[in-house]
Amino acid sequence: MISHTTKIIQVTDTHLFSDHEKSMYGVKTNQRFEQVIAKLAQQDKELIFLTGDISQDESPESYHYAAKRLSALNTPIYWIAGNHDDQKCVDAIFAKYPNFIKTDCLNIHPWRFIF
């Protein structure tokens, strides 16, 4: 019997822009992201999984924005890039944030998460 519950929140496909007024399919993704951050701040959580398509325009500004806003939650963030992400750019930027952990596999007994 497992006595500990790990509370994980997954954030995916944020499709952020450097210009906070830009939209995708009629949705201002940066504004929606702010709504998600506000909800996350109210949640009991131990880990956040950030699973790709973080940026829509692949701009350094959009990655810094994501990292800054998520870092404010003071939670470890395990992440992977998506097909809309600039791998080199996101790697370089997220490496500056100590709570961002790039991984392709995470073991939390009895679970194994493959990213």
Rank of each mutant, 00 (worst) to 15 (best):
S59Y: 06
F17H: 00
Y25N: 15
T51G: 05
Y63S: 08
Q35I: 13
L73E: 09
T12E: 02
T14H: 00
L40D: 07
D53L: 03
I77A: 09
K22F: 11
I9N: 05
A38R: 11
E46R: 09
A41Q: 12
K22V: 10
H15S: 03
F17N: 00
Y63I: 07
F49N: 03
D13P: 05
N74D: 14
E46V: 05
L40T: 10
L40F: 09
V11I: 10
S18H: 13
T12L: 03
E61P: 11
A41E: 12
S62M: 05
W79I: 04
E34P: 12
I54E: 04
I37P: 05
D13L: 02
T29D: 01
L73N: 07
Y25S: 13
F49S: 06
N74K: 14
R69H: 11
A66K: 05
F17D: 02
D13M: 02
T75V: 15
I80E: 11
K28W: 09
L50Q: 00
G82P: 02
K28R: 15
G26I: 10
I77E: 07
K7V: 08
K22H: 13
P60F: 08
S23Q: 14
S59H: 04
I48Q: 03
P76Y: 04
E58A: 14
P60Y: 09
F17K: 01
F49I: 05
D57P: 01
L47S: 02
P76T: 09
L73M: 09
D13H: 00
Q31A: 15
V36I: 15
L73H: 08
E46A: 08
L47F: 06
L73R: 09
T75A: 10
E21Q: 15
L16D: 01
Q42L: 14
Q31E: 15
Y25F: 15
E58K: 15
D57A: 07
Y65P: 04
D57L: 06
K22Y: 11
N74P: 10
K7A: 06
E34H: 13
S62T: 10
E21T: 15
H15T: 06
I37L: 05
S62G: 07
S55R: 08
R69M: 12
G26Y: 10
Y65C: 07
D53S: 03
A38M: 09
T12F: 03
F17Q: 01
E46Q: 12
G82S: 08
I54T: 05
Y78F: 12
I54D: 01
Y25Q: 14
A81F: 13
T51Q: 01
Y63N: 08
A66G: 09
Y78G: 06
Q56F: 15
E58N: 13
T29M: 08
L70F: 07
K39Q: 14
K22T: 13
I8Y: 01
N74Y: 12
D57K: 06
G52H: 04
S55T: 10
F33E: 04
W79Q: 03
A38N: 12
H64M: 09
Y63T: 08
A66Y: 05
Q43S: 13
T14N: 00
S62Q: 04
V36G: 04
H64K: 10
D19F: 03
Y78R: 07
I9A: 05
E34S: 14
Q10V: 00
D44W: 10
Y65G: 05
K28F: 12
S71G: 08
F17L: 01
I9M: 03
S59R: 07
L73I: 07
